[in-house]
């Protein structure tokens, strides 16, 4: 049983016009086995939350805390957070020329487990996960994200989630830019990991579309850098019908 606890998190970022506060006191707790959907309009700070928890150097934590089973996540380096069991599926995965997917996956798995995976099992696991995500086997010899289509990049993110077995995964707009077929494949991947492990998921999305395939236990509406409302799956339905206008006008 793992608990990711975010308390009163304030985060700033440096912009050309000066320091800007993006997160203004986020409270959120994600436990093993739970799926939380974080929904909100553009610019509300959803991605900032994801990257702050993962430790991107662009963001400065000014106050608040993030703990994983009581351990201070904010004190950990980016790699240590991943080793502790956090995973971030990125909205815009980065190209790494000259580094093959196969080399990358094996290096990451070795870093997270602290030892190299047993070759025979590993090859089989990678193959199976790729087949389930309908990725051609030639994929393993391509360079990380180089020349990948949008859908391929997202599948590759979910492939990593399957193989690295994190305790808590944050999926940052994994659904954006995907056609319906790709969305189904990616959602199936997430559901497979949920079914076969005790993973906790924080699903960040702009649209309700992905929630037809991945059912959240909790839905949080993110407005202006903090959680404005929390509820069950029914909240997503309401957002589908009403949009975010209600929150935005209330704020003014």
């Amino acid at each position: 049983m793992t608990t990711l606890e975010i308390k009163d998190l304030h985060v700033t970022v440096e912009t050309e016009t000066g320091v800007k506060e993006i997160l203004r006191g986020v409270d959120l707790t994600v436990r093993s086995g739970e799926t939380h959907a974080i929904m909100g309009p553009n610019g509300s700070g959803k991605s900032t939350l994801a990257y702050s928890v993962a430790g991107h150097p662009k963001y400065t934590i000014t106050s608040g805390s993030v703990t994983l089973d009581g351990e201070d996540v904010l004190e950990m380096g980016v790699d240590e957070r991943a080793q502790a069991g956090l995973f971030l599926a990125m909205q815009y995965p980065v190209e790494v020329p000259g580094v093959t997917v196969s080399n990358f996956l094996r290096t990451a798995k070795t870093a997270i487990d602290g030892e190299a995976p047993k070759l025979r099992h590993w090859v089989k696991d990678v193959k199976e996960a790729m087949t389930s995500l309908r990725m051609d086997s030639s994929f393993a010899e391509r360079n990380v994200n180089e020349g990948f289509s949008g859908g391929e990049k997202k599948r590759h993110e979910i492939l990593q989630m399957e193989l690295l077995s994190p305790k808590i995964a944050i999926l940052d707009e994994t659904d954006s830019g995907l056609d319906v077929d790709a969305l189904k494949v990616v959602s199936e991947g997430v559901n497979r990991v949920k079914a076969s492990s005790d993973i906790g998921v924080m699903l960040i999305t702009h649209y309700t579309r992905i929630l037809r395939y991945i059912t959240p236990d909790h839905v949080h509406v993110f407005i202006d850098g903090k959680v404005a409302e929390s509820g069950g799956p029914e909240l997503a339905e309401r957002l589908e019908n009403e949009g975010y206008d209600r929150y935005l006008t209330a704020q003014v």
């Binding site: 790699d79 991943a82 990125m90 980065v94 990451a108």
Partner: peptide, 12 residues
């Protein structure tokens, strides 16, 4: 690139 690789547990 560094952040991406490190976010997968790989040391700097």
């Amino acid at each position: 690139q560094l952040f991406y690789l490190m976010s997968r547990g790989i040391g700097e």
